[in-house]
Structure formats: C-alpha cells, structure tokens
C-alpha cells in the first residue's frame, strides 16, 4: 500500500509537468488549430533564461516569473512574426515552421549557454544545481500511510491544479476568455462582432508558452540539471496527455497529464523487468496510438464532424 501510494504520488508529480506543457498545447490548438512542435523548445529556452537570471543573483521565485515573461514574449512573438503570415498560405507550412523553430531554438540554447549540461559544466557557476522552485532537500517530506511524500511533489501538484483552475476561470468568466472561446469557435464571426482576433491569438500563444515555461522550470528543478535534449521526451509525454484528454479541452489536458504520469510510473514500477525506465516512452506511444485509434477526440474533447 505504501509502495503503491508512493508510486501514485511520484506519477502525479511527474504528470503535473506533462499537464503544464499539455495545457500550452491545448491553448494553442484551441486558438489557431495548430500543433506547436516547438512548445517543448520554447519552454527549454525560458528554462535556460531562468538559470541565467539565477546566475545574475535574482531570487528563484522572481526568476521564474521573469522566465515566464520571456516565454510569453517568445510565444506571442512567434505568433505575430511567423505563424500569422504563414498560416495564410497553408497549415502544413505552419507545421514546417514550428519544426524549424524547434531546431533553431535548440541550437540557440546550445549556442548561448554551451552545448553541455547545465549547471555542472558551467565554470564558476554560482549555482551548484538548477534552482528548484520548491524545497527538494532529502529531508523535505511528510508521511502519509507510510509513504514518504516529498513536499516538492505536493507543491507541484498544487501548482498544476492552481494553474489549471486559473485557466478555467479565465476561459469561462473573463472577457478575454470569452473572446478566446469565440475565436476558437468561429474566427470570422468573432471579427465581425468586434473582437480583435489578432490580439487574442497573440495572447493565447503567449500564455501557452508562459505556462510551458513554468513546466520546464519545474522539470529542470526536479532533475536538477538541464541539457539540450531535456524537453524531447517531455514534449511527447505532453502530447500524449493532450491526445488522451482531448486536444480542445484544458481540463482534459490536466487530467490527461496526471493520468500519463501515473500510468507510466505504475507500469514502470510494477513491470520493472519489462518496461523499466528505458521503455517508459513506449507507454506514451501506446497510449497515443490507442486513443487515436479508439477515440480520436480524446476523453474530454469534442469530435469533429468532417464535411466532404
């Protein structure tokens, strides 16, 4: 029981990272109907920025907020400069551009901060490890039914629920949220009733990238070191989470992210010999495949009616 609870909580805390990135994917998909392949790399760039702010002596809480601001600017800028002009041509071109952005940002991170892993390789670094937003000393845990729950896991779960709840309130009870839903539902008509669709889409991309940045920082704090391939696997887990929850449902993204984290940890824990840490990504692959084949709209998504 204690072991099960332990694995469940570990899964939930990992899942909360996937949920944060998946939320970003869903916000963008709702707004413009694109899958942002550079989501993980945008988060990675902001994570590196947080590290840099830490090097300059900014306290971690403030550094994270500044990193989210960097993410917001990056996301909003991408929408205005790249996605908007190109989406007039074809959605396929947008896909290619996000792939190009993926490669470009990945290179830029390496070029700016060195190709090696941070922070252990950074000579003269003030930080021994990547600053964690939450207490992560070995002694920072509390016991529930014999399972040692880290405060870090607990706060990560709280964080994702707060962010998810905040986005829910924003979508449903604010004017901006209403505008975002209107644009997602029918961009032409919302333009006619006076919504500035351009601004709304720009803000959506910004929020998505900022939420993703938070996920990146929390993940980097969990693994305590950062390298250029940090986000490859997290992105696919986040995509699996968004697929499972439904690509147009923010609540689904949170549930999907937590579910993917729990499934992975339980499977890897109980079928250690067969799955282990190596084949965790195989679990995500099977989840994506199964969901897309059996219920393409995901658990909470709305299915699309195809017109011929």
């Amino acid at each position: 029981m204690a072991l099960f609870l332990q694995r469940l909580v570990d899964g939930l805390s990992e899942g909360s990272i996937y949920a944060l990135l998946a939320l970003g994917l869903v916000i963008i998909y709702r707004g413009t109907g694109h899958l942002n392949f550079a989501q993980g790399e945008m988060a990675l760039f902001s994570t590196y920025a947080v590290y840099q702010f830490g090097e300059w002596g900014v306290p971690i809480g403030l550094a994270v907020l500044m990193g989210m601001a960097v993410g917001f600017v990056l996301g909003a800028g991408t929408e205005v400069v790249l996605v908007r002009p190109i989406s007039r041509k074809s959605p396929f071109a947008v896909f290619i551009v996000t792939i190009g952005l993926f490669q470009f940002l990945n290179w830029l991170d390496g070029a700016l901060w060195g190709g090696q892993q941070l922070p252990s390789s950074a000579m003269g670094s003030k930080q021994g490890k990547f600053p964690s937003l939450f207490p992560n000393n070995p002694t920072d845990y509390f016991n529930v039914f014999g399972a040692a729950i880290k405060w870090q896991s607990f706060w990560m779960l709280v964080l994702v629920l707060v962010i998810g709840g905040g986005l829910y309130v924003m979508f449903n009870y604010t004017k901006l949220g209403l505008a975002m839903r209107a644009v997602a539902s029918n961009s032409e008509s919302s333009k006619l009733v006076g919504i500035r669709t351009g601004t709304v889409l720009m803000v959506s991309w910004g929020i998505a990238a900022a939420v993703g940045a938070l996920g990146g920082v929390v993940y980097a704090g969990l693994t305590t070191n950062v390298n250029q391939s940090l986000m490859f696997s997290v992105f696919i887990y986040a995509a699996a989470a968004a697929t499972l929850g439904g690509f147009d449902s923010p609540g689904g993204a949170v549930v999907g992210g937590l579910a993917i984290g729990v499934i992975q940890n339980l499977v890897a824990g109980y079928a250690d010999e067969w799955v282990g840490q190596q084949m965790k990504v195989g679990v995500a692959f099977l989840v994506i495949l199964a969901v897309l084949l059996l219920r393409p709209a995901g658990l909470f998504g709305t299915s699309k009616v195809e017109r011929v």
């Binding site: 282990g276 990504v281 692959f285």
Partner: peptide
C-alpha cells in the same frame, strides 16, 4: 494506424515511434 490517423496526429504517432526506437534498442 495511418489509415485512421491524419495530419498532425500522424506526426505525433510517428514522432513517438522515432523516440521509441533508441529506447527499444537499449531495452534490457
């Protein structure tokens, strides 16, 4: 699966395939 899955979803499935391959090769 590509018979049912289209567009970016197919990109996701194949991306996962690309990620699974190195993990599979390293599988104990």
């Amino acid at each position: 699966p590509a018979l049912r899955i289209k567009g970016v979803y197919l990109a996701l499935v194949t991306l996962a395939l690309g990620l699974v391959f190195p993990a599979f090769v390293k599988w104990p």
